[in-house]
Design a binder for these strands. Structure first.
Length: 552
RNA sequence: UGGGGUGUAGCCAAGUCGGUAAGGCACCAGACUUUGACUCUGGCAUUCGUAGGUUCGAGUCCUGCCACCCCAGCCA
């Protein structure tokens, strides 16, 4: 049984069963006024995966009806991010709402001819006064009863550019006393002289969302128009437009709750502010919850979709724990990422009973969870690096790593015992003198004694310097002015959440890794190779830490 | 306040014609382990916002109440 269902799937199953539809056609309709983020990924996933499930069609459609906010650069970035996410182009194609402007205009004429729309001369303020309030009905516009001929003439002249910006609107004639504010004779066309990123200066009147969107859906033969819950109040207007124009294949709108994630800012406005004020290096800064940021950070589309699917599709307001995302990412990377060694804060270890001029190779598995991943040869020599976190001078019993006179396994190699702690004059550790159990090699002790701890290591001769960057949260910054302390925006004020290790040591082979390759740095987490945007040097971004159950 | 939507564990979320609360994350305990990872095993809602009602039986039906979200752009 397929347990991966939701209420939208139920609706579609029902439509298919009852013959209301024989084919499923969905769409993702972003406005090109910003970059896609993890919240957009939910809308993409719902529309795309639903179409896919029924071997249907999925369109990408730019909802570009507001020329003042939109930009071609966002069109390109959205195309790129969407293709990355769904692994290719949408099978239905890529469309632009603005390409239907001529159709929208013709339909507006039709509404006028039917007596369902009128040209209104009220100013924005006057219209607001006339609209009434939540508890008070609105007043009808004095221009509401103009003749069809006059409305037609005026609307044609609006298009022709005879009136200044904002001087007139075309309004749907519905009901000024409707309890749903959206039905109180909403404006469906406005006059704006602005350069459109795609249509240029061809138009000076632009249709509004509530009018344009159902037309776009209908023209593309969308069967199920899936959008987020704040449009629920708009559905009666959506249906009104579809019905008045009289489409043969009327689309229907269904709503789902948007995605909120703990510690993560999801508002385009604030993301834009971060970019514009230079708090982050750009929309694709690896701390950003944008798709480009997540991609750079090392997140995979499959983990993102797995997360969205597991979080579920419903209508409740929800704030999903980011640890679910991290779990999904770990689960995938645990299976697929190659194991490598990286050491954040190196401490030198000298094996006193190991020849200074000797180097031997130990074979370590590339992924113990995947035998097909093979092994790699790692050099071992007298001087090694281990991580500062793996040594403690006054260690409690439960500390299973290296301590004075204690034994520990060097992963895949010898068991060593720390015999001496050499310190500098300032008290810091210069090096640890150890002896290795050379007889047992990388096997078990012959006398049956237990060595509980295993630590990772690197030959000091072979190790390479590297920069490692650790992000605690997807998105962090020090200060963002008036950002509201609302649960929607998460607890983003975490100045300690970016740690940079500039003197980390890594395996030599990692130098040649390609940007975008993902690794598990043993015991330290999953990392993705990246290039620092300012220094242009290779860095490793931590995608997600390993689960830490370290207890003393 | 008028309208619309939603309330099931710390966080998400299934719950079909009313039949005796899925699953995941998180957490806790234990086993295993040459990554304190992974894996495995066990635990984790006498109760579904709340108060009543109908019924042999209610998360599911009825009534009242409460809480939260959305709507008064010529934004989407």
């Amino acid at each position: 049984m397929d347990t991966n269902t939701n209420f939208i799937i139920d609706i579609i199953e029902d439509d298919l069963k009852n013959g209301r539809h024989t084919h499923v056609h969905t769409r993702f309709p972003p406005e090109p006024n910003g970059c896609l983020h993890i919240g957009s990924a939910k809308a993409i996933w719902i529309n795309w995966s639903t179409a896919k499930r029924y071997h249907g069609t999925f369109n990408l459609r730019f909802d570009d009806t507001n020329p003042v906010k939109e930009d071609d650069s966002f069109v390109r970035s959205i195309e790129e991010d969407l293709s990355w996410l769904i692994g290719g182009l949408p099978n239905g194609g890529i469309f632009y709402g603005s390409d239907y402007f001529e159709k929208c205009y013709e339909f507006a004429l039709k509404l006028i001819d039917q007596g369902d729309a009128f040209v209104c001369d009220l100013t924005a303020e006057e219209m607001k006064e006339h609209r009434g309030t939540l508890t008070q009905v609105g007043k009808e516009s004095p221009y509401r009863n103009r003749s069809i001929a006059e409305n037609r003439d005026l609307f044609e002249r609006m298009r022709a550019g005879e009136f200044p910006d904002g001087a007139k609107t075309l309004r749907a004639k519905i009901d000024m006393s409707a309890p749903n504010m959206n039905m109180r004779d909403p404006a469906i066309y406005r006059i704006v002289r602005a350069h459109h990123h795609r249509q240029g200066d061809k138009w000076c009147i632009y249709p509004l969302y509530d009018y344009a969107h159902p037309i776009q859906d209908a023209l593309e033969r969308i069967t199920h128009s899936l959008c987020s819950i704040e449009f629920e109040n708009h559905r009666p207007l959506y249906d009104w437009v579809v019905q008045k124009i009289g489409f043969d294949f009327p689309p229907h709108q269904y709503e789902f709750a948007r995605l909120n994630v703990t510690h993560t800012v999801m508002s385009k406005r604030y993301l834009r502010e971060l970019v514009e004020t230079g708090v982050v290096s750009g929309w694709d800064d690896p701390r950003m919850p944008t798709l480009s940021g997540l991609r750079r950070r090392g997140y995979t589309p499959s983990a993102l979709f797995d997360f969205i699917q597991r979080a579920g599709v419903a209508k409740n307001y929800s704030l999903v724990d980011i640890r679910l995302l991290e779990h999904c990412m770990r689960e995938e990377l645990g299976r697929t990422a190659l194991r490598r060694v990286a050491i954040y804060q190196p401490i030198k270890v000298r094996i006193a009973n190991y020849p200074a001029d000797k180097t031997e190779m130990f074979s370590l598995p590339n992924n113990p969870e995947d035998a097909n991943a093979g092994t790699r040869a790692v050099p071992f020599s007298q001087c090694l690096w281990i991580d500062a976190a793996d040594f403690m001078e006054d260690a409690p019993n439960k500390f299973f790593r290296l301590k004075p006179d204690g034994e520990v396994r060097l992963m895949g190699a010898y068991i060593i015992r720390c015999t001496e702690v050499v310190k500098r004059s300032d008290g810091s550790i210069e090096e640890l003198i150890c002896t290795a159990d050379l007889e047992t090699g990388n096997g078990m002790p012959t006398d049956g004694r237990k060595v509980k701890g295993t630590i990772h290591w690197l030959s000091a001769d072979a190790a390479v310097d590297a920069t490692l960057r650790l992000f605690d949260n997807l998105f962090t910054l020090e200060n963002l002015g008036d950002m509201p302390a609302d649960k929607n925006y998460g607890d983003y004020l975490n100045p300690d959440s970016l740690q940079v290790f500039d003197n980390a040591k890594i395996e030599p082979a990692l130098q040649d890794a390609a940007v975008g390759e993902r690794f598990q740095f043993v015991r330290n987490g999953y990392f993705c190779k990246d290039v620092d945007s300012t220094t242009e040097k290779p860095v490793f971004n931590r995608i997600v830490a390993l689960k830490d159950t370290f207890k003393l």
